[in-house]
């Protein structure tokens, strides 16, 4: 089964918190994704809606001076893992979430191998992008690699 893993970081990853963030996001990108959805932009850019008072963004265009009062931005150094190929199969070993319900465009926050991660659910054949707290990054990557390399389920599936 073909699965590739790659670990990286996102230079402009930022969490926005505060009031009237929809307005800010609108001015940055021209639209606002629905709750727990994301929109993709070029150069790994994206903007994800985590609720009326929170957005996770990776946009080179964003600058702190665009913030109004009661708006806060905090840099994020998440470890970002890209999984290409049959990522759903790999996830079935480490994540209880039923990915049958995950649709492209969804921003999913879920536990993977005991660590909280976020994911950008991609189109069918595209690469999954997931991020986690940087201090868990080495553990998560190591764990996923190990599962990928050793699991009989990834080689044979559940069917005999």
């Amino acid at each position: 089964m073909s699965i590739q893993l790659q670990s990286s970081s996102l230079e402009h990853l930022t969490v926005l918190r505060g009031k009237n963030l929809s307005g800010l996001v609108q001015s940055l990108t021209g639209s606002v994704p629905a709750l727990f959805h994301y929109q993709k932009f070029e150069n790994r850019g994206f903007i994800a809606n985590l609720g009326s008072e929170e957005f996770l963004i990776n946009l080179a265009d964003f600058h702190r001076d665009q913030l109004e009062s009661d708006q806060y931005a905090f840099q994020r150094g998440d470890v970002v893992i890209s999984i290409s190929g049959q990522w759903r199969e790999l996830m079935s070993e480490v994540c209880i979430y039923d990915f049958r319900q995950a649709c492209p465009g969804e921003f999913l926050m879920v536990l993977v191998a005991g660590v909280s991660v976020w994911m950008l659910i991609p189109e069918a054949t595209e690469t999954l992008v997931m991020g986690c707290d940087p201090t868990y990054g080495h553990y998560l990557f190591k764990t996923l690699e190990h599962q990928k390399n050793t699991s009989p389920f990834l080689n044979h599936g559940v069917q005999k």
Partner: peptide, 8 residues
């Protein structure tokens, strides 16, 4: 957030 496992 959808159908979620209690273990989360």
């Amino acid at each position: 957030i959808g159908r979620r496992a209690l273990s989360e």
